[in-house]
Design a protein around this nucleic acid. Structure first.
Lengths: 206, 206
DNA sequence: TAAAAACTTGCAGGCTGTGCAAGTTCGCTC
DNA sequence: GAGCGAACTTGCACAGCCTGCAAGTTTTTA
């Protein structure tokens, strides 16, 4: 059993989290310094003081060490999405479901700024952010379909999820770029609001 | 010189296109049959009757042989986007710029159905569709920023491009899944219309 | 304290992707 | 139409990614 929710994590789980964090930190630091292609898994593992074989016990590939975050597990997001009152529109429900993820990111501000800088310089990593990996995305689509009372073959739920993901990723990049000093939450709100308004052209600067 | 636009392609360029098409067809067929992980570059090359070293002269990685299509080169799309009259909204301009790509896909109906089936079964490939790779995407963002008369640090252009891409990809998958028998053009229109309307919840089936 | 479960590690090995140095095909010009 | 140069193909060597397996070690549980 690997730590049920309300149990205090034992030494083993603490060590695991520690090793994982060390690998992630090392990966991000090295890639930020040298670029994705000039860092090997062996170097990352070395920096985190584990064998490279152990690296692959934590991550299925190099990219995963850079993008995945335990604080952003998809399951809670899906659960929260299902818990949003039915009268809220699907789009807004997704935004609400992301609230705690947004807070988690803002709380780990420095790590995420670095992570997003790395992602911005290696666009292949971008789609990995936030349920880029089918599993969670499919679950969210299913929940939205249920919320709306439409079949799984309806076109709306996949569109809402894809668009919401795009909005969230865009807001994160903007937040990390620092062009706008506002907190992530505000930037996400702005993006979702723009979408809810139908993405009208903004007034050009006079 | 590699075939300027209005010149008749010589034997060499014809052979290149042929080899490329053979590699793509072989890759799609084999992956559809066996799954992405159970097909090697060597097998694909073998099926297309070239060496595996030659495979990498055409594609930088295995995925590229499955997703990229010469008919969907990003440059023309960017050019068309820039050519859309300025009074058209950015979102609609992107939709218009995609028109010829949509036609090209519909014309190659069978190939694209197979390709999208493969992509649906291997979601890691999805982001590669349609300017998933920064270069074109950045160019489109720049064009939209110019259209709108806003700076490159403005948040709207990236949002529009990301959302439009999500809409296009979603429509393509829907089209290929065959849940809806309408032509791709209609499905793309529907998705863009839904976005322009602010993604309101559809009426649930009574 | 002892068995069970979980985690780490090394090793062997297949596959991806790249640089280099032939060899071959094609296009162009005289 | 001979021949030169550019473009393309290929084999080879090699770095790096990732996996399965079979130890060994640490933590948990009884």
């Amino acid at each position: 059993m690997t730590t049920t929710d309300h149990a205090a994590p034992g030494r083993r789980d603490r060590k695991k989290a520690q090793t994982r964090a060390a690998l992630t930190a090392a990966a991000l630091r090295l890639v930020a310094e040298r670029g994705l292609e000039h860092v090997t898994v062996e170097e990352i593992s070395e920096a985190a003081d584990v064998s490279s074989r152990t690296f692959f016990n934590y991550f299925t590939c190099k990219d995963e060490a850079l993008t995945d975050d335990p604080a952003l597990d998809g399951n809670p997001v899906v659960a929260r999405l299902a818990a949003v009152p039915a009268q809220v529109s699907a789009l807004q429900a997704v935004r609400v479901a992301l609230d705690e993820s947004i807070d988690a990111i803002q709380a780990d501000r420095e790590l995420w700024r670095l992570r997003l800088a790395v992602i911005a310089q290696n666009p292949a990593l971008l789609p990995r952010l936030v349920a880029g990996n089918s599993a969670t995305e499919q679950a969210m689509i299913a929940v939205v379909a249920t919320r709306l009372g439409v079949g799984l073959d309806h076109g709306h739920p996949p569109l809402v999820i894809a668009v919401a993901g795009a909005a969230f990723r865009t807001a994160m990049l903007r937040w990390a770029a620092g062009d706008d000093a506002r907190p992530l939450h505000d930037l996400v709100d702005e993006a979702f609001a723009a979408i809810a308004a139908g993405l009208p052209d903004p007034p050009s600067l006079s």
